[in-house]
Simulated scan of single mutants.
Amino acid sequence: MPDIKFPVKRDLFLETTHSPALVDLVEPEIVSQLVDFCFIANPYYPTPEMMDELLAKIPEIIKAYPSSNPRLAREQLAQVLKINPEYLILGNGATELITLIEKELIRDIAIPIPTFSEYLEKLRDTNSARLFQLPVGDDYQLNLNEFGDWIDVNAISSALIINPGNPTGQFIGLDELKAFLARMAHLDVIILDESFIDFSGVEHPSLMPFLDEFPNVIVVRSMSKHCGVPGLRLGYCCTANEGFIQTLRQVLPVWNINTIAEYFLLMLPRTDLEYQQSVRQVVADVRLMYSKLKTLDGYKIYATGSNFILIRINFGMKALDLQMRLLEEYGLYVRDCSNKIGLDHYHIRVASQGEANDEKLARALAEISRDFI
């Protein structure tokens, strides 16, 4: 039997469709010995200097209420995004906004699968999800022409696109996307999730500068991902549709953003250079990681336009078993994608955690596959 070095509370995996936090899975004293490849977020931002500043401010800001005027925080974020601040809505994580958008604006929606589970779980009626299976033979690439034909044939009123896709990593170029959106102008709502767009490695990949051209589009982004701050619970959506904006702002609670998150937003304009450098480093890390994983026997490595990579296990071991072996024997935590509707039981997702940690994962995957090949 393999030597279990890091005992794991396996029962916690049965209680959520998301990955349990490492701090819950193992004893506190060994958390620092593990590497979390489920953590699909920027590992280089905030910088250590930003962390020090936040820590110094905590005694002051936790004694204060957040601002009752969200315009101030919106303006800081809009400055780095270079968009109209009136188009922005801040959320307590992107999941708060996904929930409100789907409950307030969506009647039925076309969803390419596999996808991020929140888009399936937060609908008013689960029967309103119309699932479009991405083809295995095309490596789960979304063909927008076929998707548009399917939407129209089935008379669906709304659509979701995640770009780059999660968990697939598939990336859609801006020209192709704009052509699709122009064709789909008759839809009530198009949700465009760009949470990973900054890691595409493409210059100016976002639709946000063109929102005025597409009034039925809402762009959603999770700052947990591109800014590396999941604990702050920060997300935002933006749209040029005044009706959407009014509806969503009316149902948001006052003070939905805490004071630490507000202060972080104030830091963004003066640390944008550091942020852009961190993104370039992540892109370089992912490309190196991809090149190493592609040399491994027994795995299919999918091309990616994000900071994570989808992997299929081709030597018979199920994803859950590989996840547990990596975690308990090597201290490496990957995402088992078995509960992603549209995938089989042989896919894992890994996010780059820097060159040294990525190398540990590549070696561990090679060692495990050698036992079967």
Rank of each mutant, 00 (worst) to 15 (best):
F244T: 01
G228C: 04
P269H: 01
I260K: 10
T239A: 11
A240W: 04
F13Q: 05
T95H: 13
T295W: 01
P209R: 07
L322T: 10
L326I: 01
P253R: 11
N357S: 14
G235P: 09
A240P: 02
I341L: 15
N216Q: 15
V8A: 06
Y333L: 02
Y263R: 06
L343P: 00
I40E: 13
Y302M: 09
E213P: 00
Y299R: 06
S128C: 10
I260H: 01
V136Q: 10
L320I: 00
D336A: 06
T95G: 03
D152C: 05
A364W: 07
S157M: 07
P59Y: 02
G354V: 05
K360W: 07
I101P: 02
I309L: 14
V136Y: 12
G231W: 00
M324F: 15
N163A: 06
A129N: 03
Y45R: 08
Q323D: 00
R335S: 09
Q276D: 08
V217E: 04
L322P: 07
Y119L: 13
Y87L: 02
Q33L: 15
I191L: 13
I368N: 06
D285Q: 06
L55H: 04
A21V: 07
P2R: 09
I301Q: 05
V31D: 09
D198P: 07
A185I: 09
S200R: 05
D297V: 04
N241A: 11
L120F: 06
P230F: 06
I156V: 13
P28K: 11
I62T: 11
A159V: 09
I373Q: 09
E15K: 14
Y346S: 14
P209N: 05
I373M: 09
K292E: 15
M1Y: 03
N314F: 00
A159F: 10
L252K: 10
P7C: 02
Q277R: 15
N258H: 12
E53G: 05
V350G: 06
I341Q: 12
